[in-house]
Nucleic acid binder design. Structure first.
Lengths: 223, 223, 223, 223
DNA sequence: AATGAATGAGGTTTCATTCAT
DNA sequence: CATGAATGAAACCTCATTCAT
């Protein structure tokens, strides 16, 4: 392996850090059905295996970082919107969701894989730190949302986001479930049954819309 | 290992088949954080490793079968209720959900693990067959539900079940997420933040109730 | 790898167990300067890596077993001699030592490597069991020796063996010390210095003889 | 890492050289059960990893140097004593041994680890140089001892030191052997067996005393 | 049918050493 | 001289699956 430019300064290190995340992301996106091993990630990043371990404590932490970056992109824009001056409606929120969480081919598979993968392997400290960063984002986004939908009271924004995320993830898993191709095949074949007459993006759309409409209306669901 | 009586007749085979599922279920329930390996399952069932492969093509198929049995229990009772004579309300549905899906310690971890585990490892045929059995149950349950909630139109029952399941699974994963213990710790510590001020069973209850109330009311969410 | 005859019965298993030990021994003897890895051992035994782990919990336990077998051969013959009818003299003991511990090319390198290697890695249970088996042998051999050398009192036999072993090991390490070849080179070159004018087998001989003579004489060293 | 003053002059280099040895020694003493890695040594010395390699060809050479320094301290005092004017007795020698070799927590673990570690990794040149320095010390000490114990003839002093060292090292390894804690446990439990009824310092004391007494008496062991 | 011995691919992590800066 | 980022070989062990008995 050619010795690449060394990352001496903090900025350069950040670049390399991100390059590794990019590599992992590319691999994940390329074949969502499996988790790349560290050797592959290093290779994809044009680095040696050991170098990856200079930037990430373990493979799990690397995956968690990729995941977090995906979430972060979503939250940053949500927060920018809800804390900005313009009006924010349900459609805007759904559009953001699609753009950041549904369309990128890697987000959902990774999110789905992060459970079970990390619960066990990530040291408690990292897990807590992750959760705290997450909480900060959630809280800010939730509060912002509450400002835009006057019928929401304190805590409703966060709860809404939580349920949205549950739907996003849960529905995706149901569609990706056992052999998604099979799903398509059956949908085409059986045809009429409402069991197969759905596809993930549309169904998510409807479900989210129902959830939000039900929540921001005059008589919101209990927090 | 003692050589047990050979299962010659179909009935005996079914018994052995179920014994293996029972064993896997016990192990899963005993330590939900890990997936038992085949040797352990065989051991727990009082059989040899090779014997497991006489009844299940692969480990994945075995897990899928355990999962399906869990789902089946739920659907059988749902169908019995909605096709029975008595009245059925939202509370009844939520109670059944809790009883079959939330309370058994193994269901959710397993369901969660079934994605990603099976999507790629289970041969298409098995996957299709699984989906078809699933579809049949769903359809019957969905239709039954539609009869009990007059504002639902055709297909709404199935959609409602689908979204319910998404919430059940999605919320559980969020709570089990990265190191559930960390969650508890933070909940106790920070205290005030609505981000941590929730627990799975209660939140699921509220979310399901909101979903169903919103759906079965006069102006249901679009299918 | 060709599937070799399976070891079904206990006897066959013992054979395979020993075959693995033999393989490890051969490798150790072939290149005493390094510890073979498990893959090599398996290969040398004509087995797969995994098979080695069927017979030994870990690599350390395997090495410990090789070591113990070497010791065992020595003790078995010592015990046979001292518990037999014939007379036993110092020369006999020294001869046995040479035959079992000095001449086999693997014993000393392995013994030397067993410290530090195992202290950390072998679980306490195994270590205790090993020590207990060792103690039993030592005690029997020590008691037998005391019967043949009337001036020895209780415990002197064991102490004598202990010190003998210390000399065997300590002197060997000094000679094998930093690059044994260098030793030879210097011995030939400088010539006259008593520092280099010794070789392991002879020096061990003299040291053991002095130790035993001093110990079994009328006024033995304090236990 | 702060860029420390560069060592331009020979004296400064020696200081840095020793600082590295000190660091290695401290780490070894702090946790005798493991060999520190180069990064730790550098860190402990307040230097960068690469700097260590400016002063030592390899990790092995570094360890060898630490070891040699330990031996050197012993020999320097021994030589001072035996070449001094006062009388020197067996007790004095044993006292020196304890002070320099037994009591420092790092000496024996390191000495023990030096075999096998170095035999193959240290280039011949270094090994020869090491041995020659060692020989010079040994010879001087041996000769001095012969002057103080009139029954010793030429070469006996060196042989005595050699055997002493073998006992020191050999016995230590036997006591440190497989899981020293186990040893203690068994010693407390079984109680009566002479196999466990010993501890290193006392046994070494007795063994050395016996060796020296037997050697310096009128009829010494053959050289 | 049942067994369980044998297989061997597969992945993570450590760390001595090098060398661009 | 000093640094520390980068390297990549090396080694362990697990476990799903096969197949001789």
């Amino acid at each position: 392996m050619v010795i690449r430019q060394r990352a001496i300064q903090a900025g350069e290190k950040q670049v390399r850090h991100d390059a590794i995340l990019d590599a992992a992301e590319r691999l994940l996106a390329r074949s969502p059905e499996r988790v790349a091993n560290v050797a592959e990630v290093a290779d994809e990043a044009g680095l040696a295996k050991g170098t990856v371990y200079l930037y990430f404590t373990s493979k799990e932490e690397l995956l968690l970082a990729v995941h977090e970056r995906g979430i972060d992109g979503f939250f940053r824009e949500v927060i920018a919107r809800v804390e900005g001056d313009g009006p924010v409606g349900i459609d805007d929120m759904i559009r953001l969701t699609h753009h950041h969480l549904v369309e990128p081919p890697l987000f959902l598979p990774l999110a789905s894989r992060c459970f079970g993968l990390m619960s066990h392997s990530v040291p408690a400290e990292s897990a807590i730190a992750f959760k705290q960063r997450m909480a900060a984002r959630l809280e800010r986004a939730g509060a912002g949302i509450e400002r835009h939908f006057p019928h929401l009271s304190h805590g409703d924004g966060v709860a809404l986001l939580r349920r949205s995320y549950a739907l996003i993830l849960g529905l995706w898993q149901m569609s990706a479930d056992v052999a998604g191709e099979a799903h398509c095949a059956l949908a085409g074949a059986g045809g009429v049954s409402p069991v197969f007459a759905w596809n993930y993006p549309d169904e998510l759309d409807r479900a989210l819309r129902a959830l939000w409409q039900g929540s921001v209306a005059a008589a919101p669901a209990a927090r």
